[in-house]
Design a protein around this nucleic acid. Sequence first.
DNA 1: CTGTGGATTTGCT
DNA 2: GCAAATCCACAGG
Length: 219
Amino acid sequence: MIARRKPGRLLSRAFFEDPPERVAPRLLGKILAHRTRSGILAGRIVEVEAYLGPHNNPPDPAAHTHRGPTPRNQVLFGPAGFAYIYSIYGRYFCANVSCEAEGQGGGILLRALEPLSGMEQMARNRGLKPGAPARMLTSGPGRLCEALGLTRPTHNGLDLLDSASPLQVRDDGFMTTEALVTVRIGITHAADWPLRFTLEGNHCVSGPRSLTGQRILLR
DNA sequence: CTGTGGATTTGCT
DNA sequence: GCAAATCCACAGG
């Protein structure tokens, strides 16, 4: 007998219509779900990073939107709650969610999930044996996309809040009280800005365990 | 834990 | 044309 997970409910557009540094911590504990022919691949969001739009002062030099709209980043300048997926280092994809008001260019990078359903298919997608540890499936932005089967050609620009969309962010009622805030990973500019948010202690969080930071209370 | 190499898309000059 | 890039796998200590 397979236990059916609580699917949760879709989030509202308003949830995402705030600056990235405010939406990012709010996203912790929510669920990213991909409906595929081979089942639902889903996990709880345990690590995110905020990337600020170019209207900020000073602008965020690490953000893809830093120099304004381009063909690649146009989704980030659209309405909030859409998937921005880009390719990186020739081998991987990374998934983001557009946020704040249309035209503002804010985004949130999804860096790690705790797998909830479809682990066997995730392992296949990642080229691992069934039963591979959760960490190896969805810990890291490239791994996360590979595990869920997300690519730019098929998933960039999808509405994450639409009941008909194959890719959604959902809320199953999971409550968190505290987040750890650290600097972002893998960037060279604005390397000291505290814009990475994690569920401290969750073993699917990527990156060095030694990264220290401030704890904040979640509303 | 650290270091290092693979690999290609993007956008600027 | 080229440098940079929101990375990952693997080897070695």
